[in-house]
Design a protein around this nucleic acid. Structure first.
Length: 955
RNA sequence: GGGCACGUAGCUCAGCGGGAGAGCACUACCUUGACAUGGUAGGGGUCACAGGUUCGAUCCCUGUCGUGCCCA
């Protein structure tokens, strides 16, 4: 017996275990070895992470696709795993060390620290995986991977070495985004532009050879800057070549205030005559644009900061070169001063000497590190780069040709825009946690890139012997004895950007570089499901690296879903405190309710504003389903093995088969098209508004009546439709459906492996029975089910008849409510001038209509009795003789209003039909439709007027 | 500054060439034998604004205003 109340928590913990033990989520189940594959690689969450709403949405959608395709008989691989998340994880462990007042990372050294991170990973890394399981994610957990696993690391090394060999990875000294807090370079994508209110300083740079006089503009050039402290590293002033104000000055020099350096005035189109003064100071070592200008005019680059963003001038040869002696005083004063403190000091000094013309408030974009949240410093260092431009070309072509498509399509534009303007990808990070770069340096700094240290040593020794740096004998000795070569070559300390390894995810998880059967079978994957925020970070890189190393796109479809926001539409963030924890919702309403909410709200192209009320509503939906199944059980509904819904005799039963079939089609087509909200809406409507509201209600009299073929058939059909519901709903609400599947009948298989509803009637009853009873764990699921489209059973006659019943009941209820007839009052119903068909129907549905409309009796007459309330049902009059009970004036008003409505309709249509152009131009069927509308409205009006006449007689 | 969305019921959102729908909220009634996490009925919208295309525009086009996001 099904319990009265549905308790998600009980079911969910139990069910997760049952699925796990059954191996239902395993890819490559033997009975599906000939089935088509369906593969999704999970966007690997950070090991440090815990489940947030974005994960919940992302994984719910993936799970819907996987469960759907699994039920359709495919060999599904949902590849799970986690990402080592370089900076994030290192920060977490460092913070932990600090909290526990243990020695910091640098104190304990690299090896010890890494050991600590691994230990931390072993203890806490499983959190998010467990949370995904609670959500019901049907990943093949036996195949879980981690980006720093041995196999995946091997792939990373191999990719690095090969790209290097191909010249697509190189080391370069150029400006990078330097994070002065985390002390590492980061990629462009990890930089967030933040609007900051600052100032624009107008500085006077004295022209060489003219006596500086603050009052005489001829003696200086004014440059505008938002970063006055970088003036220490200025090596030029740029003006626009067509800016006539400055034409005479080009080629001359200015003397850098305070510093005394002599720097040229150059003409360059970079400077914007309309901005500031039109002249701009050039600091090639601390600004990306200035770097380019410097290159064009061969200006020196002077780095004036250290790694932590402090001014560094003492022993700074680049800075001191060619400076007059007095300059050192300034250097001493500013040395080791933080860049912002230095700004104040410098501005104060400049003011003292009249070098500041004015200061304007200025709002501008300032780059910040997305992890550290400090201002990023463009910084001149050696880093490793990927030639993204070259790799991007085939990745662009693949989307252009349709080998990979984006859903919704408009994201392709975003992808193209970025890919076509892609910059070299800085992949080295000055961190410890990550894949250490497989590059070794010889004594003279020469780089040896190799897959292993042995190989690098071999190459290096060979090279240095050849260069006669060491003798062949020394070389051999060093090759033999590691102690002898200690320190001769040293490995690059840096690690790779996390996204470098996640970019390989679609094939590294399948065993690449080994030619594994999995790689053969599951690559390329089917669909990638992800948020738009990582199109650049991840999707683009997978496309580039996947195509380069596998010669095939990594996935054929990229489904981009929305962002989950709070109910006011704000982005959820810890600092705003508006984060809704999905696990709290799971605790309170159940995983199924949360999943269904997310699916129902996942309309393409719009963000999700999540409200708990909505979740509560879908929890209620689960309860509704639960009770419908309970009702079926209480009425002894079960499905005989040979039951064929298309052969049902009862109109009501044929009707629900018809509706179920339509719903199957709607749900299937919607999921196929990634219209999750439509799919959820279709099944929701079917369960609640069709199955519960009408089918079960209409079936009650039969169930309460005497045993017989009709009752037997109805019981079977209730069970059949219930099973169809459980199947259709399973991808959305896996827990409750699996539970109900188990408790409503004796089953041979779990719902998770049960075939998706097929076209009703397409299999013989023997075949149907066989499919139903086949145990997928040890037998073949007939491949035929893959060929079948979802339901095409249709019965318009049944639809018309049940439609009439529904309309009649609704009309009576409505008028009763309007006339304030208490529910306890049973009234008679008279069908006036009913057609033979109506009479027959009324007799067939006598019990039901009486019950649902609270009638005492149904009879027929040529015309409605005097003083009766009259309503139109499908063109015929249904009358409730309520003389004395009803308010005649109110009823008269009601009828007049109805007549007015009908009149309005007629007028509207008449106007249309009178328009010659409409009749001439509109499609024939539309004109026909309009004519029919007019007929119907006219008939309605006539009947209503008759009704009104009769009412008047009574009063 | 460039790009992409979005302005539809009180709220959250579907719809998209032929006089507009859902959920929640609201109002009234109902402890009717699955379900009060329920049932029945009801109110509520010049589909942001202005032009244009069309026989016909909430839907297509242009512009305006407003909101959000991405990139400089």
């Amino acid at each position: 017996m099904i319990e009265k109340n549905y308790q998600p928590a009980d079911i969910e913990s139990r069910m997760a275990q049952i699925w796990e033990e059954s191996g239902a989520f395993r890819a490559g189940r033997p009975e599906r070895k000939d089935a088509p594959t369906f593969t999704i690689v999970i966007p690997p969450p950070n090991v440090t992470g815990s489940l947030h709403m974005g994960h919940a949405l992302n994984n719910t959608l993936q799970d819907i696709l996987c469960r759907f395709e699994r039920m359709r008989g495919k060999d599904v691989l949902w590849q799970p795993g986690t990402d080592h998340a370089g900076i994030a994880t290192q920060m977490v462990v460092e913070r932990q060390l600090m909290e526990r007042q243990e020695p910091g990372r640098r104190d304990m050294g690299r090896a010890k620290f890494l050991e600590r991170v691994w230990r931390w990973k072993a203890e806490s890394g499983g959190t998010i995986v467990n949370q995904l399981k609670r959500l019901g994610a049907s990943c093949d957990w036996s195949r879980e991977r981690f980006t720093m696993d041995e196999g995946l690391s091997k792939a990373v090394i191999k990719v690095f070495v090969e790209l290097h060999r191909q010249g697509l990875i190189y080391k370069d000294k150029r400006l990078v985004n330097w994070d002065p807090k985390l002390l590492t370079a980061i990629s462009d994508l990890e930089v967030q532009q933040v609007e900051v209110k600052g100032s624009l300083w107008y500085l006077r740079y004295p022209i060489e050879g003219r006596q500086f006089d603050p009052a005489d503009p001829k003696t200086f050039v004014v440059v505008a800057t938002t970063r006055p402290e970088t003036m220490l590293g200025d090596t030029g002033v740029a003006v626009h070549p067509e800016d006539e104000r400055y034409t005479d000055l080009v080629g001359m020099h200015v003397i850098l205030p305070l510093v005394g350096r002599r720097i040229p005035i150059v003409a360059d189109e970079y400077s914007d005559p309309d901005k500031g003064s039109g002249a701009v100071k050039i600091t090639p070592a601390h600004d990306f644009n200035d770097f380019d200008v410097g290159n064009r005019h061969s200006l020196p680059r002077i780095n004036v900061f250290d790694k932590e963003g402090r001014v560094s001038l003492i022993e700074n040869e680049d800075y001191l070169r060619g400076l007059p002696e007095g300059a050192l005083m300034l250097a001493e004063e500013l040395h080791n001063v933080d860049r912002y403190a230095a700004r104040k000091k410098i501005v104060a000094r400049l003011e003292d000497f009249g070098f500041v013309e004015k200061v304007e408030p200025n709002t501008h974009m300032v780059p910040h590190g997305d992890r550290s949240n400090v201002v990023i410093e463009p910084y001149l260092t050696d880093q490793w780069y990927v030639d993204a431009k070259t790799l991007a070309q085939p990745a662009i072509a693949a989307v252009r040709s349709g080998a990979t498509t984006f859903v919704p399509k408009n994201w392709e534009k975003t992808y193209f825009d970025w890919m076509e303007n892609i910059q070299p990808w800085c992949i080295s990070r000055q961190l410890w946690w990550g894949h250490q770069i497989p590059a070794w340096y010889g004594p003279d700094g020469k780089v040896f890139v190799a897959e292993t240290e042995e190989e690098a040593v071999g190459n290096a020794l060979g090279y240095y012997v050849e260069q006669e740096v060491i003798t062949p004998e020394q070389g051999e000795e060093m090759a033999r004895d590691p102690a002898k070569r200690e320190g001769f070559i040293v490995r690059d300390e840096d690690v790779l950007d996390t996204w470098f390894s996640s970019g390989l995810w679609p094939f590294s998880t399948l065993g690449w570089p080994d030619e594994t059967p999995e790689l053969q079978r599951y690559y390329p994957t089917s669909t990638l499901v992800t948020g738009f925020d990582i199109i650049f970070f991840w999707v683009a890189r997978m496309m580039m690296l996947g195509i380069h190393f596998m010669d095939e796109v990594p996935f054929s479809t990229v489904y981009i879903h929305a962002l989950v926001r709070d109910e006011k539409g704000a982005k959820m963030s810890k600092s705003k405190g508006n984060v809704i924890d999905p696990l709290h919702l799971v605790d309170e309403y159940g995983a199924d309710a949360l999943r269904f909410t997310l699916a129902a709200m996942a309309a393409q192209g719009r963000d999700i504003k999540l409200s708990t009320q909505r979740v509560e509503g879908y929890r209620n939906f689960a309860t509704k389903l639960w009770n419908a199944c309970r009702f079926a059980e209480m009425n002894g509904c079960s499905l005989p093995g040979d039951f064929d819904p298309t052969q049902a005799k009862q109109t009501l039963n044929r009707w629900i088969a018809h509706e179920a079939s339509r719903t199957t089609r709607e749900v299937s087509e919607a999921i196929e098209a990634y219209r999750f909200n439509d799919a959820a809406g279709a099944i929701y409507r079917f369960v609640w508004n069709v199955y519960c509201d009408w089918y079960l209600e209409l079936a009650k009299p039969v169930l309460l009546g005497e045993d017989g073929p009709a009752k037997a058939e109805t019981r079977a059909m209730i069970a059949w439709a219930r099973d169809e519901i459980l199947k259709l709903l399973h991808p959305f609400m896996p827990f409750i459906t699996e539970e109900l599947w188990a408790v409503t009948a004796k089953r041979d298989t779990l719902l998770v492996l049960t075939p998706w509803p097929r076209k009703a009637g397409s299999l013989s009853s023997e075949e149907l029975a066989q499919v139903v009873t086949t145990n997928p764990s040890d037998a073949l699921i007939p491949t035929v089910i893959l060929e079948l489209d979802a339901g095409e059973f249709s019965d318009p006659e049944a639809e018309a008849e049940i439609g009439w019943v529904v309309d009649l009941v609704t009309a009576i209820r409505s008028v009763r409510a309007e006339m304030n007839i208490p529910p306890a009052t049973l009234t008679p119903l008279v069908l006036a001038a009913a057609s033979a068909e109506t009479k027959a129907r009324a007799q067939r549905w006598n019990d039901v209509v009486k019950r649902l409309s609270r009638l005492s009796d149904i009879s027929f007459a040529d015309s409605a009795p005097e003083g009766a309330v009259q309503v139109l049902v499908r063109g015929e009059v249904a009358a409730l003789p309520l003389k004395g009970v009803i308010d005649l004036a109110a009823e008269r008003a009601r009828l007049e209003k109805e007549i007015g409505k009908a009149d309005g309709d007629i007028k509207r249509v008449d106007a249309k039909l009178a328009n010659e152009k409409f009749v001439a131009n509109a499609p024939e069927e539309i004109v026909e439709e309009e004519k029919e509308k007019r007929e119907a409205a006219l008939a309605r009006k006539t009947k209503l007027q008759e009704a009104l006449e009769r009412l008047k007689k009574a009063s």
